[in-house]
Computed example of a mutant assay.
Amino acid sequence: MRSGVMSTITIIRLPLGPFRVNTYLVICRSTGQAAIIDPAGEPQTIIDALDRAAATPCLILNTHGHPDHVLANAALRAALAVPVWMHAEDSGFFADSPDIGDLEARTGLTVDTVADRLFADDERLQLGAATIRVLHTPGHTPGSCCFLVSGHLFTGDTLFVGDAGRTDLKGGSLDRLIRSIETRLMNLADDTRIWPGHDYGDRPGSTMGRERKENPYITDFILDS
Score class of each variant (00 low, 15 high):
79 A>T: 08
51 D>A: 13
60 I>F: 03
95 A>R: 08
56 T>N: 11
40 A>R: 07
63 T>L: 01
147 F>E: 08
3 S>Q: 14
161 V>N: 00
94 F>R: 03
180 S>N: 01
10 T>R: 01
76 L>R: 04
143 G>A: 02
113 T>Q: 03
161 V>W: 00
118 L>G: 02
45 T>M: 13
128 G>K: 00
210 R>F: 05
26 V>G: 00
139 G>C: 12
94 F>Q: 07
108 G>F: 07
212 R>D: 07
119 F>R: 07
114 V>E: 07
71 L>H: 02
30 S>C: 05
122 D>K: 12
77 R>Q: 14
63 T>G: 15
75 A>C: 00
120 A>P: 00
79 A>D: 12
10 T>D: 00
124 R>G: 07
136 H>S: 14
181 I>L: 02
82 V>W: 04
77 R>E: 09
57 P>R: 04
209 G>Y: 13
144 S>Y: 03
38 D>N: 15
59 L>H: 04
191 D>W: 00
76 L>F: 05
164 A>C: 13
192 T>P: 02
165 G>K: 09
81 A>D: 08
15 P>G: 06
187 N>I: 11
8 T>R: 13
42 E>Q: 13
92 G>P: 05
104 E>L: 01
153 L>W: 02
182 E>M: 04
117 R>I: 01
143 G>I: 07
123 E>Y: 08
21 V>L: 13
175 D>M: 03
183 T>M: 05
2 R>M: 13
139 G>Y: 05
4 G>S: 13
99 D>M: 03
134 V>G: 02
74 A>V: 00
105 A>E: 15
162 G>D: 06
125 L>I: 15
224 D>T: 13
86 M>T: 09
105 A>T: 14
147 F>H: 03
224 D>P: 09
167 T>R: 08
128 G>S: 01
179 R>F: 10
21 V>N: 15
6 M>A: 12
219 T>W: 10
23 T>W: 09
161 V>H: 06
121 D>W: 08
208 M>H: 08
51 D>E: 13
184 R>I: 14
64 H>I: 00
177 L>H: 11
162 G>A: 10
121 D>T: 01
20 R>H: 10
17 G>P: 09
99 D>Y: 01
174 L>E: 15
207 T>F: 02
195 W>A: 06
145 C>H: 00
185 L>N: 10
6 M>T: 10
150 S>F: 00
118 L>K: 05
15 P>Q: 06
190 D>N: 13
37 I>P: 10
148 L>S: 01
91 S>Q: 10
132 I>W: 05
80 L>G: 06
85 W>M: 11
